[in-house]
């Protein structure tokens, strides 16, 4: 098993982060979370627990109301690391071809098409969509659209990939396939991945480490290390997987009760 070793240095650290929206809703309470370079981290929590908000704060798409977000390398750290973001929906530009959609981040960075073309086709090849470079999003299936979205996030070779329940809307067969492909991409590219999900099964299957969050206002309830003997083809049906899922599921129910009791 060739798992890229997660360096112990955190790449981004959230300390005491809180977020209160204008409406008065407290989405995050006091979130402490650090992401280690190279790791595959799942953030697991019930719907509306503020995990997406935490991800948006990491990306700089939302400002924390309280607390700090520190990137390794100081203030410019976030830019230097390069972030790829994958939303819950594919979020593609319907008027642009698959290739043009994947080219977008490079285009916005000022790279001309001639210089970007090899990188775009290489990234499309990586997600298995080379043949669809000239197709329009509406001509693709849900799973393929999500692959385009992932390719777009990867095209800048970011060191951190932030994913906000990217497979939640897909059917199970497609989801399993994309789970496997994402694991492969992670192993090959060594990208740090923060994967927000409400699925116990998905988080156990994908991640090395799971952070379990409480209900809103969200904070970290507990952390679980997922270190199975092997993640081969049989992992999903193994007894080990089942027991890891049970352990994670128990942690999640405790997290939800902890908040109600408090």
């Amino acid at each position: 098993m060739s798992v890229s070793p997660a360096s112990q240095e955190p790449i981004v650290t959230l300390r005491g982060v809180g977020k209160t929206f204008g409406s008065g809703t407290v989405a995050l309470d006091h979130l402490d979370l650090s992401v280690k370079g190279g790791e595959f981290l799942a953030v697991l929590g019930p719907s509306g627990c503020g995990k997406s908000t935490a991800l948006r704060i990491m990306a700089g798409l939302a400002e924390p109301s309280r607390g700090t977000v520190a990137w390794a390398g100081g203030d410019d750290g976030r830019r230097a690391h390069g972030i790829g973001f994958v939303f819950q929906e594919p979020t593609l530009m319907p008027w642009a071809t698959v290739a043009a959609n994947v080219y977008l981040p490079l285009k916005l960075a000022g790279t001309g098409w001639d210089a970007a073309a090899p990188r775009v086709s290489e990234t499309l090849a990586r997600v298995g969509l080379s043949e669809f470079a000239n197709a329009y999003p509406r001509e693709l299936s849900g799973g393929m659209k999500m692959r385009v979205s992932i390719a777009r996030a990867l095209v800048t070779a970011p060191r951190v990939l932030l994913m906000d329940e990217p497979f939640a809307a897909l059917d199970e067969i497609t989801r399993f396939k994309l789970n496997d492909d994402l694991r492969t991409l992670w192993r090959e590219l060594g990208t740090t991945i923060v994967f927000v999900t409400h699925s116990v099964f998905e988080s156990v299957y994908l991640a090395e480490r799971i952070v379990v969050m409480t209900q809103r206002p969200g904070r970290v309830f507990t952390e679980l290390a997922i270190d199975p003997a092997g993640r081969d083809a049989g992992f999903r049906t193994s007894a080990e997987y089942a027991s890891l899922c049970r352990m994670t599921s128990d942690a999640l129910s405790q997290a939800m009760n902890a908040r109600t009791a408090a």
Binding site: A59, G60, L61, F85, F87, T91, M93, P105, L108, A109
Partner: peptide, 12 residues
């Protein structure tokens, strides 16, 4: 699409 707006923001 708000997410697309966010994406453009993310890439500056």
């Amino acid at each position: 699409d708000h997410n697309l707006t966010d994406l453009f923001r993310l890439y500056g």
